[in-house]
Design a protein around this nucleic acid. Sequence first.
DNA 1: GTCTATACACCGATAGAC
DNA 2: GTCTATCGGTGTATAGAC
Lengths: 245, 245
Amino acid sequence: MSKQVSTLKEVALPAVTTSARMAGEERRLQILRVAMRLFAHSGFRGTTTKKIAQAAGVSEAMVFRHFATKDELYDAILDQKACDGGMGDPRVFLDDAIKRRDDRAVFETLALRMMLHHEQDTEFLRLLTHSALEGHQFSEMFWERVVTDLYEFLGGYVRERQRDGAFRNIDPVVIVRAFAGMVIHHSLNNTLWDKKRRLLDITDEQAARAFTGILLSGISEKAEARATRGRRAHQSTRRVSSRNK
Amino acid sequence: MSKQVSTLKEVALPAVTTSARMAGEERRLQILRVAMRLFAHSGFRGTTTKKIAQAAGVSEAMVFRHFATKDELYDAILDQKACDGGMGDPRVFLDDAIKRRDDRAVFETLALRMMLHHEQDTEFLRLLTHSALEGHQFSEMFWERVVTDLYEFLGGYVRERQRDGAFRNIDPVVIVRAFAGMVIHHSLNNTLWDKKRRLLDITDEQAARAFTGILLSGISEKAEARATRGRRAHQSTRRVSSRNK
DNA sequence: GTCTATACACCGATAGAC
DNA sequence: GTCTATCGGTGTATAGAC
């Protein structure tokens, strides 16, 4: 079989016209894209192969020629999201800011990258949430691979900064959870509600800056305290719930 | 047979106590309760009337005697959640703390009430999320009635405290969003993942305290607002970057 | 009231014509 | 390759026996 072709790299390219005649691979990608949209909207069970075929402008049998089963189609979509659907590796695009110990850049860049990703690929959060609610493999895989990794990575940075005396001694996992909560909850709101119904309609840049500002002020050892030599010794009664690693 | 939904986990839920003989109203409530659990777990389309009947220990026809259609059953469940499924009125249980201008009590109490509600009624968040994803009335109603109200109420309090000079001049809606994000995202994580898979396994009390601490330190004008509440003697009117709205 | 049996529509998937 | 036709299975809802 020589059906194998480059399976992706065309993701950020929504402008694909539906011509009457399409090469096999092109048709496959088109079905994939259409199905992605429908699955994101209605979930796995809420999307019928008939709807997919109609939306793609082909017969239902055509769908099953490219994908043996509905499950296979769904998995193909989620696989793609899992692979290239991400926002990139934080260890890479945060590398510079981390080396400089630029806390603001670290968190703001990360927040912005996440939110831009969620906004550009609006299907992602919907697919992930659907899959999490249904207990699908994808959400578990995403959790174990991406989320856990992010918690370890960002938590490690927080721990370092705590040793530097820059951050207060709050459980790093709590800090990451708080940060992720602000960002993801905001993205989820923007995904689930259209613009007219949004209670908070600001740009991703503004949101990233605001959330980062709140978080950093919230976890930083106060500059004033240090400037005024106010760091009294008895203040070291910080509570840290040491987590087993 | 090899018919298996490979990608979706079919989880057997524990049975609800069923007595052989039940009065009509009691039986209705029991069906309602059982269906609630199943809908919360698998969503509307993922829950069949057959499963509901089996889980309730009655025949399928029995279900349709009490509820004319599956939709009617679903609506009855969501109606119930919308009415008594809440956590109470924040304007009531926060009244005391607000009058005392006890910021910590305000946010921590609210956070705890929300998280306890989400933990006690684990079906609520799942039902709400399912309904939001599929664009059901319920989520919109909940949004307009509960969420909007909370944003106005809590945002109003933040605005007051900003006039008092206690909080920095950040858009109140952003602050509420940040707070809600931390709390709800944490609850959602606890709802979607079982205990073994949780990256952050702390009590609701600890979480409420931690999130409140981060938020208050993050938005407070004073550096050590978190340490002691009584010491608000000399409050300097320090200028902060004002955000345009 | 409660059950068994079943009607009827729809869905996923296949066969075979062109 | 793409379509039409169709099959087995499942899901909602109903009819009618007890």
